[in-house]
Simulated assay, not measured.
Amino acid sequence: MGARTPRVTDWRLIVQSRLDRVRADLAALGPPDPLDQESQQWRAVAEQEAAVVEDMITRAESRWSAVASWWSGWHIERAWRSLHEAEIAVVAAGNGFLGRLPGLKARVAENLPDDDPRRVALEEMRPGEYPLAIERELVVDALRAAFDASDFAHAGSRALRNKLIATSVVLFVVNTVLGVIGLVKPGLIPMCVGSEKLPTVCPSGKGAAGTDVWLVQVLGAFGAVLSAVVLLLRRRPSLSPYVMVGYQALIKVLLGAALAVVGILALGAGVTTGLIGVASQAALLLWAVILGYGQQIATRLLDTYTDRVMDQARPLPKLESPR
């Protein structure tokens, strides 16, 4: 097999644009000052880290290597960490921070709390008050702390993404097993509902059938799709290399299918006797849809937790509440 060309993805485009900015800033620094050895060292660091970033975003991998890299996220996080080091080195290579100070403060404020001593020191710094070497240390420490917080948040979002994928696989296997059992041995997983006062109704409408479980799962998944659409509509734009909304929606659909089966079993077992009566096939199928949508109660906590993790990975201005 020949070498594969690297895929064009959102995170690569963002990293490439910022890498181009790093190289433009390096060129704008002009010739190095022979008396400022520290500045020359920072220039060399910036060039080395920029080369690492270039390698990460242009590296071609085989299919299996690409899958392993996608799961571990090492190439994404390596590219971001090297990019951050290159950006720090470019800032440190300059001979002053007066023009950059507003941008540096804004960037640090995105990831560090108000009472962080490194953020406080940067915000209180007055260019020219200290020797250039001390100013460099203050700026580098604050930027590294801010970028470290961002990088750790990326790692946390990747871990969450992998957990969502593993959960989706488990739910898919469970739903598939239930469907196959219902198809091979109709009635083993009873999907028909009846009581003393109401006739027995089944999803297929003609007694227990092998497709009953599948039909209930499909309708439960349809109900879950409705809640997934709501999730998509209220989702804020993501600046993180890991996008969770697709995996969240997948879990909702798979969980909705499973809960629809469990809910119909509960109706058939008489758990809701006196509260819910199912008198027709249409009512039974409607309950499958409602039960599938009911997974929203369970996944709401997951959505809230995911939002919190993603807000740390890609800090955005808080949305103002409508007046």
Rank of each mutant, 00 (worst) to 15 (best):
C202W: 08
T306C: 02
K163Q: 12
G220E: 07
P32E: 06
L316E: 14
V45K: 15
V120P: 06
R100D: 02
A283E: 07
A3Y: 12
Y247F: 15
F97W: 07
W214A: 12
V52D: 01
R308D: 00
A282R: 06
L143P: 00
R43L: 04
P203N: 01
A279L: 05
P186R: 13
G256I: 02
A68S: 14
I181P: 00
T299W: 05
V245M: 11
V289H: 06
P131C: 05
A228Y: 11
G205Q: 01
F222N: 00
P34M: 10
E129N: 10
W74C: 11
E320F: 08
L83G: 06
Q295W: 05
V230R: 15
H154Q: 09
I134W: 15
I165G: 08
W74F: 08
V253L: 09
T304Y: 11
V22P: 01
V169I: 14
T273N: 12
R236T: 00
A51E: 13
E49W: 05
S321R: 15
S72F: 08
V90H: 08
V170L: 13
L83D: 07
G263Q: 04
Y130L: 14
R144L: 04
L233M: 13
L26V: 08
A249W: 03
E129H: 07
I57K: 13
R118W: 01
A92N: 02
Y242L: 08
V245G: 10
G268A: 12
V120S: 02
A93L: 09
D114R: 14
V253E: 06
I76H: 05
R314A: 11
G182Q: 02
S168P: 08
A209C: 02
A155S: 15
W70L: 11
V90D: 11
L160F: 14
V91I: 09
F147D: 03
L285F: 00
T200A: 04
L285G: 03
P237E: 01
L219N: 05
G270P: 07
K105M: 01
A224K: 03
I251S: 10
K206M: 00
V8P: 05
M310A: 13
L112I: 09
G263S: 03
V8R: 15
E87G: 05
L26D: 07
R126K: 12
A89D: 00
G194W: 04
G256V: 04
I134K: 15
V140P: 07
T167G: 04
A269Y: 01
G268Q: 12
P186W: 15
Q16N: 14
K185D: 00
I76S: 02
E77F: 10
A51L: 11
R78T: 07
V169L: 09
G270T: 03
E110K: 15
V243F: 07
Y293M: 10
R118N: 00
D33K: 10
A28Y: 09
S69P: 05
V201S: 09
V262E: 08
R158D: 06
V8F: 15
A109M: 06
K197Y: 10
G103V: 09
Q16L: 11
E61I: 10
S69F: 14
S204P: 03
P190W: 09
A224T: 10
G194N: 01
H154L: 10
A221R: 01
G94V: 08
A159P: 00
Q296D: 10
R161F: 10
G73C: 06
I57D: 04
A28C: 01
A313Q: 03
T9Q: 00
Y242A: 03
W42C: 01
V180T: 05
T176H: 04
I264T: 05
